[in-house]
Design a protein around this nucleic acid. Structure first.
Lengths: 345, 345
DNA sequence: GTGAAAGCGCTAACAT
DNA sequence: ATGTTAGCGCTTTCAC
């Protein structure tokens, strides 16, 4: 059943039917009702491709997921983010087009996407502090929203980001309030913007409370269980061992916990762990076991917001050049059984 | 630059240019070379939408990801699977179209996808033992490949699956060989086909070696850290505690490990853990720390195979009705530091 | 308020 | 081997 068939059934022209279905004002309400009714009865769905060709709009958003060839890791955050974004797209009639590319091919892929014209805009994932994709997309004239920020980028661009500085500032303060002075930071790779900001928040909080930062207690790496384990083992080996760990990821935190086990240390008594991690959504949010401090479904929310922002930008784009907007989200601070006062306090 | 422009530049008809670019045999090699050269120079890219409309092929594959509304979990396996599939699509010029839907809306979504005609086929994720989507897709005439199987489905269909029965059979045998007799199974939800099969493998191995299966040592649930922890705590509470755990997921295994810590039991000495988990890809495959038995990048491989199978089916579909095919993949057995002989052996 | 006609950029059947 | 013509199914002027 296509537009013409439907029009024939109704003894109307395809034009009128199209107008009725797309909410144009010049159709009489009675015809509109008739058309809508018939469309429903015949289960009519407009052919997406035809619509796209005619309007010149792809009605699709691209998500280009970089896949590092060095460490075969698909960032688990993507799943939740995309779930949120997908929700919004679905409601607005957009498709989500996903492309998985090796890190080094990104440039080529974006250009290709652009010239094939099969997306109206895209989301930039995992920005680095210096992010070449922003300049590229600007040059290509493809609307985009960055999930995160790129500190070293000078031009304007739209983004949605978690307030990483504040989250780590608060988490650090929380530990300081419990009497901890030797606090270790197990961070992500610090060329990534989020990791850079997390470190800033950590350092600022220490400085604000007059606690001396110890470079030996700051590690930056790949946010795996193994990383957490190794860094914790190393840091806990010396005489000046940390009394608390602040980690960037749930996996790292689990690694730290394993290290504690191996060393016969008790979590929450000898050593505390606080983690800011969007991955917590993998654990059942049963509420029965708040082991970690974490930002729960915040990633999904970020996905929704990114999507909304981008769609608004695209819709507006037809009329005026939209001006870039940023949205800063706060991470909830959830405190659980993994923390306690510093030993001797 | 579109086809017509390019043709004008070359003093050829759009038809010839199209034929040259699409590898039709009737073009002379010299014209083809001229055309290809010009296309490259002008950076010509065919408009995807137009091509799709003209050919009636969407050049896209749909992935419908069910998102359970009850437990807010996005199965982390999807990320890796999709990375594999995406790789194949990219090479073949297909797009990957992702839709995230609440479990209960699936029916509607598939019908919509079908009538909007924006995918040529789709992948069915996470099949249950009784899987209604298979019948639906068959009825809709939309080509599909199932990642996994649906035991209770009687009709033919194409699938790619991990050999879950064998994986768990071998893992169980491995533990029996180490002298373990009281082996606990921490499984996924057993209406899911993979979980059902894993249990089968476990039970078959016990039976084959004359070990009595204990219903008290079999748990089925959501594969979270909390599940592993709770089930392990419960099972280890009694006097007849298990000496080994076989878990379906890395998270569950981590939960079990935490329980051991809380109870002062030593991993690999008092209790062994073996886990079959595709999630291990989240951990850096540094090789320095084989804590678990696992199927590593196997999920990504499954993604690739599913995609290839589906594309083949679609290409063939034009000519003949393709007959369903199944592919059974073996999971590697990786053994690490988390296992040891049964106490007293 | 409705319809006829042209066109979006490509492919494919039918010439030549 | 190349060109002509007619669509694919929709939107969008423009005319009534």
């Amino acid at each position: 059943m296509n537009l013409k068939d439907l029009a024939d059934q109704l003894n109307l022209s395809p034009t009128t039917v199209s107008r009725a279905l797309n909410g144009y004002p010049e159709v009489s309400e009675v015809t509109r009702a008739r058309v809508e009714d018939a469309a429903r009865r015949y289960n009519y769905r407009p052919n997406t491709q035809a619509k796209r060709l005619a309007t010149g709009r792809a009605m699709a958003i691209g998500h280009v997921i970089p896949i590092s060839t060095q460490h075969e890791i698909v960032n688990p955050v993507f799943a939740d983010f995309i779930a949120g974004a997908g929700e919004v797209y679905a409601r607005s009639g957009y498709d989500l087009l996903m492309t998985i590319v090796p890190d080094e091919d990104q440039d080529r892929i974006y250009r290709e996407i652009r010239s094939k014209r099969n997306v109206d805009g895209c989301i930039v994932h995992s920005p680095k502090m210096a992010e070449p994709r922003i300049g590229l997309l600007r040059e290509l004239g493809l609307p985009f929203v960055v999930h995160g920020r790129a500190t070293l980028e000078t031009g304007p661009y739209s983004w949605v980001d978690m307030n990483n500085i504040r989250a780590f500032h608060r988490a650090t303060e929380f530990l300081i309030d419990l009497g901890h002075r030797r606090i270790a930071l197990i961070n992500g790779i610090e060329t990534m913007d989020f990791a850079h900001r997390r470190r800033l928040g950590f350092e600022q909080a220490l400085a604000a409370r007059g606690v001396q930062a110890d470079p030996g207690l700051m590690a930056s790496g790949e946010m795996t269980e193994a990383q957490g384990y190794h860094e914790a083992m190393a840091m806990l080996a010396g005489p000046q061992r940390p009394t608390a760990f602040l980690t960037s990821s749930l996996l790292s935190a689990m690694g730290v916990r394993r290290a504690l086990g191996d060393l016969g240390l008790v979590l929450g008594r000898d050593v505390s762990i606080v983690t800011h991690d969007d991955d917590l959504s993998y654990l059942r949010n049963g509420g029965d076991e708040p082991i970690f401090t974490a930002t729960r479904s915040s990633v999904r929310d970020a996905g929704r917001r990114c999507a909304r922002l981008l769609l608004r930008q695209i819709e507006l784009g037809k009329a005026a050049v939209p001006k870039p907007v940023g949205e800063l989200l706060e991470a909830p601070l959830i405190v659980g059984a993994s923390t306690g006062p510093a030993p001797g306090v």
